[in-house]
Computed example of a mutant assay.
Amino acid sequence: MARTALITGASSGLGAEYARQLAARGTDLVLVARDRSALTALADRLVSRHRVEVEVLPADLLDHRQRQKVERRLGDAARPIDMLVNNAGFGLPLSFARNDIEDEVHHLRLHVEVPMRLTHAALGPMLARGGGRIVNIASVAGFIPRSTYGACKGWLISFSRWANTRYAARGVTTTAVCPGFTHTNFHERMGLPPGQEGLADWMWLDADDVVAQSLRDIARGKAVSVPSLRYKAIVALTRVLPAGLLASVGERGR
């Protein structure tokens, strides 16, 4: 596994879980998010428990100057980053027509433009060293018509597949991790209290299982990782079900 990993959206949810599991494997970390205090608290716990080096890099990735700090850190040859985890993101209500268009633009930029820019910043140094791993946190929604969230995640999946095909032979693998609905604070940040997302219990995954399974796929250099058998089956069905039925399924949950 990587010697040093940079994780965006690291202050909570899947980002924090990647930080915990990578630190447990002895990986040094660079943690990126807007909330400095949350990053510092997580860093202190990881250093105390696992004796790894943890750098806190607060940044709003939608701010040009702050994002450039992260890009420069990815390109720092003296302190190489072996793994980039593009995890930062947020959700919106599924009704595109009622959503504020500026919110939609910010959503598109954070889920598509930002990981593209950070991947570009990391890729050159990784190729020069002959090794590295890029991880894009996508979603099963990327296989299902699900408003602009599914569209953004579908882009990440397609981009990751192409990049893995293009650069894996030179030592740099790219993996799109596609979890289903996962117990984190993601839905709470959208204003939905726990238990009010409109989903059956069987559809929920635990964050630690998602990350553990994805790390195995990342280590194998897989282009797409779909944690859990139940969601692997759902993704397989998306290849044969009619588009109208898939769109109806995509309206479930929030």
Rank of each mutant, 00 (worst) to 15 (best):
R67W: 00
S160M: 09
A24I: 10
I134A: 14
A163I: 00
A247V: 02
L74Y: 09
M116S: 08
A23I: 01
L39R: 10
A23M: 04
D60M: 05
M190A: 15
F181P: 14
H120N: 13
S12F: 14
E188Y: 14
Q21L: 13
E188R: 15
M190R: 15
G89W: 04
E55N: 04
R189Q: 08
A163W: 03
H187R: 15
A59H: 08
T184Q: 05
I101K: 13
F143D: 08
L6R: 07
G132I: 00
K153W: 14
A219M: 09
F143K: 06
G142W: 01
H106W: 14
H50N: 04
D82E: 14
V105L: 15
G171A: 03
S228P: 03
R166P: 03
K69R: 14
G91S: 12
A23C: 00
K222R: 12
P58C: 09
P93V: 12
V140G: 07
A121P: 11
A16K: 11
R51Y: 02
A59Q: 00
P227M: 04
A243C: 12
L192Y: 10
K69Y: 07
T27R: 06
Q66P: 03
P227W: 04
I234G: 02
R36P: 06
M203C: 11
S11R: 01
A33P: 02
N87C: 05
L22N: 11
R109H: 07
G131T: 10
Q213M: 09
L127A: 11
S228I: 05
L42G: 02
A122K: 04
D28M: 02
R170Q: 02
M83G: 12
L108H: 14
S228Y: 02
I144M: 01
L215N: 04
A2H: 03
G9Q: 10
L110A: 03
A33F: 02
L192W: 08
F159H: 13
T175A: 05
P242T: 01
K69C: 11
T165K: 11
I144W: 02
F90D: 03
E113W: 11
A219D: 06
A88N: 02
L215K: 01
T27P: 05
E113C: 08
D76C: 14
S248N: 15
L215G: 05
R166K: 13
G198I: 12
D28R: 09
A97R: 15
A24T: 09
R230G: 06
L127P: 06
K222Q: 09
D60P: 00
